[in-house]
């Protein structure tokens, strides 16, 4: 029986990186995964939860759980921080023993970040991609420390034909995005972002890859501001590129 994946597209990926989502669908289907898209979904509430607005976060979690609670199979998303919210924070929002809590625990257990899902459930590291460029990898904080995904994205990248993976100095240091942090403390966010851009530029890579839409927005914007020729891309962009940079 085919593995089933319910797409959890997340706000930022939907608004700013729709091609990542389309690529994810095509890649999963090519690997024999049955992909479904619960169309009623909106925001998981992460920005509210992380900013202390728990009552709003709870409302959005209830809505999210209603939408995904009706589905079966895995729930798969291209964004580490959103998955971290579902896996680790949804259960905290509800009283143990309540119906919502049960739903949250169930959803947490079947929600996966894309690279996690690919490596551990689909059991694919070589997806037949080709990308003859120098690439460096930025470890997004919530993907890395929230979900413990350290090796999966790099294993996927290493299997790509022609790709040269260059280590990024300070790979595991935050890029300064931090959600609302970027507008609450813009000066600090800027300094952190610029340090990240300098590190990326120092590698001589053509492309920097990350696994979270927030980091990519921040890093891509920073690269553009600095006039750098390095492109920021999502892991999925690389795995579906078929040779050329889009």
């Amino acid at each position: 029986m085919a593995i089933k994946a319910q797409l959890f597209i997340t706000c930022l990926a939907e608004q700013f990186f729709p091609n990542v989502l389309k690529g994810m669908v095509s890649l999963l289907e090519r690997l024999g995964v049955q992909v479904e898209f619960p169309e009623e979904q909106t925001c998981c509430g992460q920005p509210f939860f992380n900013s202390g607005y728990h009552s709003q976060a709870r409302d959005l979690a209830v809505k999210w759980l209603k939408v995904f609670g009706r589905t079966d199979g895995f729930i798969v998303s291209p964004s580490g921080s959103c998955v971290d919210t579902v896996q680790h924070h949804f259960p905290e929002l509800f009283l143990p023993g309540s119906a919502e809590h049960r739903l949250a625990v169930d959803a947490a257990a079947r929600t996966y970040e894309f690279s996690q899902f690919l490596v551990h459930q689909v059991k694919a590291t070589d997806v037949g991609a080709r990308f003859p460029h120098k690439v460096t990898y930025h470890a997004s904080c919530h993907l890395l420390r929230g979900l413990g995904v350290r090796e999966e994205p790099k294993a996927l990248l290493q299997a790509v034909r022609g790709l040269e993976l260059i280590p990024l100095p300070g790979e595991e240091t935050c890029c300064g995005f931090g959600g609302t942090f970027s507008v609450i403390y813009p000066e600090v966010s800027k300094a952190m972002m610029e340090a990240k851009i300098r590190a990326i530029d120092s590698t001589g890579a053509d492309v920097v890859v990350a696994g979270d839409a927030g980091c990519i927005m921040n890093i891509a914007g920073g690269l553009r501001q600095a006039g750098s020729s390095v492109r920021a891309m999502h892991l999925i962009d690389i795995l579906t590129a078929g040779g050329e940079m889009s």
């Binding site: 898209f37 507008v183 966010s189 553009r224």
Partner: peptide, 23 residues
């Protein structure tokens, strides 16, 4: 404002949602 606090250090990507239509 308040997004000028973002654009003071880097540009903001354009909204480009079209996945739902595509699906």
């Amino acid at each position: 404002a308040p997004l000028n606090r973002w654009t003071m250090s880097r540009p903001f990507p354009a909204f480009a949602a079209d996945f739902r239509r595509w699906w």
